[in-house]
C-alpha cells in the first residue's frame, strides 16, 4: 500500500516496522505534510517536523537519550529516555510525551497517535481545525 494511502480518512499507512531503522527519524509524507516516524526500543512515535521553538525542521535532528549529571565529574546517560534534538538551537523534546527535556520551555513537541497492526505502521493525522493549527511561537522561550 502506498505510504500515504489512508485506510480510514484519518489513519495513514506509513510503512512496515522493519523499514524504520532503530533510533533514526524517518520523514514520511502524510497528506502532503512531513511526519517523522521514529522506532526505538521503547516504542514507535510520530512527530511533526516543526520545532515548537522557532519552527526548525526537528525531524532532521538527532534521536538521543537523556544526558544528566550530578556534577561536571558525574554525568550519566539514560538511553531509555528517548528525545528528539532539533538541528537548529538544539532544544530536546521527549518522544513519549512531547515535553521539553530539562524543563527549558513549557511548549511541547507535536506528536501524532500511531498504531502498529501486524507490523504495519499507521499514523492518525487529523487536519487541525484552523483555531487549533500549531504555529511556532517566538514568544515563550
Amino acid at each position: 500500500m502506498p505510504a500515504s494511502e489512508a485506510i480510514s480518512p484519518d489513519m495513514h499507512h506509513v510503512g512496515s516496522l522493519a523499514e524504520f531503522e532503530l533510533d533514526v527519524c524517518k520523514i514520511v509524507q502524510v497528506d502532503g505534510r512531513d511526519v517523522g516516524v521514529i522506532r526505538t526500543e521503547q516504542g514507535v512515535y510520530a512527530i511533526a517536523n516543526r520545532c515548537p521553538h522557532m519552527g526548525g525542521g526537528i525531524c532532521y535532528g538527532t534521536v538521543t537519550g537523556l544526558m544528566t549529571a550530578t556534577s561536571p565529574e558525574n554525568i550519566s546517560y539514560d538511553e531509555t529516555r528517548k528525545a528528539m534534538r532539533c538541528p537548529w538551537h538544539g532544544w530536546e523534546f521527549f518522544l513519549n510525551d512531547g515535553t521539553a527535556v530539562g524543563g527549558i520551555t513549557s511548549r511541547r513537541l507535536r506528536r501524532f497517535p500511531l498504531h502498529i497492526i501486524q507490523d504495519e505502521v499507521y499514523v492518525i493525522l487529523r487536519m487541525p481545525r484552523p483555531d487549533q493549527a500549531e504555529t511556532p511561537r517566538g514568544d515563550d522561550g
Binding site: 526548525g56 525542521g57 525531524c59 532532521y60 535532528g61 538527532t62 538541528p87 537548529w88
Partner: peptide
C-alpha cells in the same frame, strides 16, 4: 551536536 551546520 557534532557540528554547527543545520542538518535540515
Amino acid at each position: 551536536a557534532g557540528g554547527s551546520l543545520r542538518k535540515d
